[in-house]
Amino acid sequence: MFDFLKIFGGKSESSSEQAHKRLKFVLIHDRANVSPEVMEHIKNDIIKVISHYMEIDQKAMEISLENDQDAVALVANIPVNRMRPVAGHRR
């Protein structure tokens, strides 16, 4: 389809919209930075859940907050050593 809005110089993002997005993003980071303890808690909880199903390399595991253009994601890198035999049999 034709993008008439763009052709006729239609609205680009206003500065207040940009401020809104940038703040939402930076505050997640500010907060995460203030509390590495929270990241540690999250990590431990993830280990607990995943360990039911697979054996993971806890020392090599990494989690972090990462961002692209306009979203923040919790990214986890969890090396798996082997599956547990009980996997899939849990309630």
């Binding site: 206003s14 500065s15 207040s16 919209e17 401020a19 809104h20």
Partner: peptide, 9 residues
């Protein structure tokens, strides 16, 4: 004008 954050934002 869209150049300042408002209360809702």
């Amino acid at each position: 004008d869209g150049t300042m954050l408002d209360m809702t934002a």
